[in-house]
Amino acid sequence: MPTNKKESFIFGLMMCSGMVAVMASYNLFVIGTVEELTFHTVLIEVMCGFVLALLLDLFVVGPLAKKITFALPFDKSKKLLVVLNISAFMILGMVFFMSLFGLVMTYVGQGLSEYSMLGMYGTIFIKNFILALPLQLLVMGPLVRFVFTNVIQKNKAVVH
């Protein structure tokens, strides 16, 4: 996996690109506004979401997920356990923050509804978690790790 800051940034870009693209599309369909929004509006919201997700990944959630994982009492030589733990904490943290972002964007775009903000947040969180967990663990995580190790890191070895 990433061995330095540059590789961490590239890995984060790849992961955030995939996750934000799928999760943003999913959320547009879930709230039923995909037909009502203009391309410009969707582009702005997705770009804001991508920038926020990348910043959270690199500076808040990512480091915290790693810190928690390496503080847990399990055999760290088992790489699969390390990856699964980091991924699980990343999913929880990113869904927590990005659901808040989604709530704010919904509020800005549609205003308050008859539901409480806490109730709306809980609903958004659960719906996002239901998709983010398998998406990260079964699709994006393995795909990005495969591409990263076989394209990015392999090309780095060829250049040197």
Rank of each mutant, 00 (worst) to 15 (best):
I152K: 06
V139K: 04
Y115Q: 11
V42K: 09
V20D: 05
K66L: 13
V147F: 08
L137R: 10
Q153G: 03
E45N: 06
I31Q: 09
Q153L: 15
G12P: 01
I44S: 07
R145T: 12
M15V: 08
F146L: 15
A24K: 03
L137Q: 10
M47P: 00
L28H: 11
V60Y: 12
P73E: 11
V144T: 12
N27W: 04
A53N: 07
K78C: 03
G109M: 02
V30H: 02
M47H: 08
N85A: 10
L138G: 07
T3M: 01
T3L: 13
G93K: 13
F96I: 09
E7P: 03
V147S: 07
N155T: 10
T106D: 00
V61K: 06
M117L: 15
M98N: 11
T41K: 14
V147G: 04
P142R: 08
P73M: 04
M98D: 02
F101L: 03
F146K: 15
P73G: 07
V46R: 01
F29A: 09
K156D: 01
F125L: 15
T3G: 13
L103S: 02
G93I: 08
P134C: 01
A21W: 09
F70E: 06
M120A: 14
A88L: 14
G102H: 08
Y121S: 07
I10E: 05
D57H: 15
G93H: 11
M1W: 03
Y115A: 13
S116P: 09
E36I: 05
T33I: 12
L13Q: 04
C48I: 13
G111H: 07
I10M: 10
A157H: 03
V159T: 09
F59T: 02
V61A: 02
F11Q: 07
Y26K: 08
L72N: 05
K5L: 13
T69Y: 09
M14D: 05
V46D: 01
L100Q: 01
K127Y: 08
N27M: 11
K67E: 06
F29D: 00
Y121K: 03
A21F: 11
V95Q: 07
V151P: 06
A157G: 00
V104M: 10
T123C: 06
M105Y: 00
V104Y: 09
M105R: 11
L80S: 15
L28Q: 10
S17P: 04
F96N: 08
P63K: 09
Y121G: 03
L37W: 04
F11D: 01
T3C: 00
G141E: 08
L138A: 12
L52G: 06
Y121R: 11
T69R: 06
G119P: 11
L135I: 08
A24F: 05
K154V: 12
L92Q: 08
S25F: 13
G119Y: 00
I126C: 01
N85E: 05
F97M: 13
I86K: 13
M105T: 15
L52R: 09
D75W: 05
M14W: 02
